[in-house]
Simulated scan of single mutants.
Amino acid sequence: MTEELKTIEIKLQEQDDTHLLFGTHDKHIKIIEETTQTIIRTRGEVIQIQGTKEAIEGAAQVIRKLQELIRRGIQISSPDVITALKMLRSDSLDEFVEMYEEEIIKDRHGKPIRAKNVNQKKYIAEVKKHDVVFGIGPAGTGKTFLAVVLAIQALKKGEVQKIILTRPAVEAGENLGFLPGDLKEKVDPYLRPVYDALYQVFGVEHTNRLMERGVIEIAPLAYMRGRTLEDAFVILDEAQNTTVAQMKMFLTRLGFNSKMIINGDVSQIDLPKHKGVQSGLIHAQQTLANIKQISFVTFNANDVVRHPVVAQIIQAYDQAEKN
């Protein structure tokens, strides 16, 4: 027996920006309709939602939360709608508006940068509370971008004197030997997400000036050996490709008044399998789990802040690997 269809109505207020709420060509409404399996019609000052009782209540909750953001003067876009729907599914929609209350910094265009989901919010909180934080999860969850933004925030506040960004020189299916230049120049193309984050906040020219002055340093992990990193915000990206020895070497570089973020995706290890090399990230997870001053934040496919199909792609590959 099919469940009886019901209808619910939401009355729009004068302060509601309907163009922002509905999206260009009603894009936001279409996303809500498709995800909640409802039919949404707009008639003058009324939004009419039709579907099963549970579906229409969920869609109405999402629309009301988006209305609340707009009334607070926050510009919403498709990713915000998708986040609200994900939070509805995970029963955490109550935290949706609260997530937007904390602005980390503004980008070079004056646009606020905020957490985009509950795990990003947790990650930001853990970085503030701990000097060593591991961010573990799939690509697209915003780990690298957030780490760089938090480093820039610390630099701007004068909490650190420099930002150091590093990654191991392990190829993701390509061969570094065929790339021109020295080790740093060979690793640079692999640090593209780091540069993109810096450029979004500082712009290209200012980033380059800070790099020339040594305020921002981007270097392969091998360059960290023998150093003590003080008054620095240090980010290790692609940490799944470190060996156990490299991870230990990196973590023991931590000096006074410094913070370390170690990001990685344990499903994308490029270390040579035939040699039986263990990932330093997996080993660190097991070895350091009981140290209270170190925090581990785990992201999953639901935290992906790219196109919604990306999360489905990750889940499909995860399932295929399990099978």
Score class of each variant (00 low, 15 high):
91 D>Y: 13
46 V>R: 14
111 K>F: 02
114 R>W: 01
63 I>E: 06
78 S>F: 02
99 M>K: 00
79 P>R: 08
67 Q>Y: 04
57 E>I: 10
59 A>D: 10
80 D>G: 00
52 T>E: 11
69 L>Q: 03
98 E>Q: 13
65 K>I: 02
53 K>F: 12
65 K>L: 01
52 T>C: 10
111 K>P: 00
57 E>H: 13
119 N>F: 04
102 E>I: 05
94 D>M: 00
53 K>G: 01
77 S>K: 14
72 R>S: 05
87 M>Y: 10
63 I>Q: 12
72 R>M: 07
67 Q>F: 03
63 I>F: 05
58 G>W: 01
90 S>E: 14
113 I>E: 07
98 E>V: 01
119 N>G: 04
87 M>P: 05
56 I>Q: 10
117 N>Y: 05
59 A>N: 12
99 M>R: 03
95 E>Y: 06
94 D>N: 12
48 Q>F: 07
81 V>G: 00
84 A>P: 04
66 L>D: 06
105 I>L: 15
96 F>P: 03
68 E>T: 15
76 I>N: 09
59 A>M: 13
57 E>D: 10
49 I>F: 03
71 R>W: 03
92 S>L: 00
55 A>L: 09
47 I>A: 09
106 K>V: 05
83 T>H: 09
106 K>M: 02
109 H>Y: 14
106 K>D: 10
81 V>M: 07
83 T>N: 12
84 A>E: 06
45 E>C: 00
107 D>V: 08
86 K>Y: 13
76 I>F: 12
53 K>R: 10
105 I>S: 06
94 D>E: 13
59 A>Q: 11
111 K>M: 11
79 P>I: 09
106 K>R: 12
68 E>S: 14
46 V>H: 05
46 V>Y: 05
71 R>D: 03
110 G>L: 11
86 K>S: 07
88 L>S: 12
105 I>K: 09
112 P>N: 04
102 E>A: 06
66 L>W: 04
46 V>D: 11
44 G>L: 05
118 V>W: 07
68 E>A: 11
108 R>H: 05
43 R>N: 13
83 T>F: 06
85 L>Q: 14
46 V>Q: 15
79 P>D: 11
106 K>A: 10
70 I>V: 08
118 V>R: 12
60 A>Y: 02
86 K>R: 15
83 T>E: 08
114 R>I: 12
68 E>C: 02
58 G>S: 15
69 L>H: 08
117 N>T: 10
87 M>R: 06
102 E>L: 04
82 I>P: 07
82 I>R: 09
44 G>S: 02
112 P>H: 07
45 E>V: 00
81 V>D: 04
81 V>R: 06
114 R>C: 08
93 L>W: 07
118 V>A: 12
107 D>C: 05
55 A>F: 02
101 E>T: 03
95 E>H: 12
94 D>R: 07
91 D>R: 15
45 E>I: 03
50 Q>T: 13
87 M>Q: 15
49 I>P: 08
58 G>F: 01
109 H>K: 13
58 G>L: 07
87 M>T: 11
88 L>D: 14
55 A>T: 08
65 K>N: 11
110 G>N: 04
97 V>N: 04
62 V>M: 04
53 K>M: 07
47 I>K: 09
115 A>R: 04
63 I>V: 14
